[in-house]
Amino acid sequence: MNTADRVDLVTRYTQEVVTDEELAELLEEDSPSAYIGYAPTGEMHIGHFTTMRKLADFLQAGVDVTVLIADLHAHLDDEKSPFDLLDARSAYYEEAIEGMIEAAGADPDDIDFVRGTEFQLEEEYTLEMYRMAAETTISRTQRAASEVVRESESPNLGGLIYPLMQNLDVKSLDADIAYGGIDQRGIYMLGREILPNHGGESPVCLFAPLLAGLSGGKMSASEESSKVNLTDSPEEVADKINDAYCPMGEAEENGVLEYMEYLVFPILDERGENFVVERPEEYGGDLVYESYDALESDFVNEDLHPADLKGAAGEYVSEGIDPIRERLTEQPELLAEAYPDKYGDE
């Protein structure tokens, strides 16, 4: 695979690359490395699946991939995960991520999994973090983490340490590429500034878009109706999508269309399949789409009705998460131990 093809593969379905020139130069090398970190807090959902899909592209492009289960980060961010649940939630996250990677068509064995506690408590890491803390202002770290860490008028100190550690992770894991959602941009822009002063290099940054919620606006992990969970039944998936915000002809903040663009069509492309909307002959018969752009065009031009789109979308999304759902529901102890308040009595 030549460099141009590797660049196309690595950058597809992303929102921003910092910078394109640096990435192209990096992909001239044989085995560059990329990393993404996940703090094991709430249950994983379909928004995570869209970023996991990109890891399959990395592997296909010959990029070494590390997934960090950022257990300490999960506690530092306003104690979103109690300390005594970090091990259980980390185990659940690793299992869910392996399921998503496999469902995306890649081999989870090709990815290195690391927990933050495996290296973030070492003396060298800790001393470097203190150096970073001494050289970085509170306002700069707050600005960097504003889209990620829970904010308040009187923030906990852990939320200020969080962005420093996240950038130190890039150095410690020897990552050439830092990959994450676009909400991570502020943190990694800080890293590009400060890492060269701490024995590291400025990483190339790739950012994935954040999906709109099914109820309109931003997807919320705490709002069940705004997202599809990985363990939702086919009936639950269908109900959530049927109730979703999807006004006729409008693509803006349309979560159903975003599911199509960033999840369903990438999976179908890998399989060499089309997206089929089944309709009775009296309403024009079935519609077949080879690309997302064609589907969006029909929807915006009102040639595709929201009800028809939702019906097909529910089936394809449910099919997409089916192997992940099966993997997790066959291990109910994972969820029970990670989220005892919700699943402990089941």
Rank of each mutant, 00 (worst) to 15 (best):
306 P>T: 00
191 G>P: 01
18 V>E: 11
38 Y>R: 13
183 D>A: 12
30 D>K: 14
205 C>R: 04
335 L>T: 07
186 G>I: 08
237 V>K: 02
346 E>L: 12
200 G>L: 10
293 D>G: 13
257 L>H: 04
151 E>Q: 15
288 V>Y: 04
87 D>V: 11
324 I>D: 03
319 E>K: 11
344 G>H: 05
263 L>G: 06
182 I>H: 06
225 S>F: 08
183 D>C: 10
110 D>P: 05
132 M>W: 08
283 Y>G: 09
295 L>R: 09
106 A>E: 12
290 E>C: 01
17 V>T: 14
292 Y>G: 01
286 D>H: 14
24 A>Y: 03
189 M>V: 12
129 M>W: 05
231 T>L: 06
96 A>Y: 04
69 I>L: 15
233 S>K: 09
238 A>T: 11
279 R>H: 06
323 P>S: 06
251 A>F: 06
184 Q>S: 03
55 L>V: 15
16 E>V: 12
332 P>H: 10
143 R>D: 15
2 N>H: 10
143 R>A: 14
293 D>N: 11
196 P>R: 08
102 E>C: 05
22 E>R: 15
112 D>Q: 15
138 I>H: 05
245 Y>H: 15
298 D>I: 00
332 P>Y: 11
9 L>H: 02
195 L>F: 14
77 D>K: 12
29 E>L: 13
145 A>F: 05
302 E>G: 03
184 Q>Y: 08
37 G>P: 00
230 L>W: 01
10 V>M: 04
342 K>W: 03
60 Q>P: 02
277 V>S: 09
49 F>S: 00
207 F>R: 06
146 S>I: 12
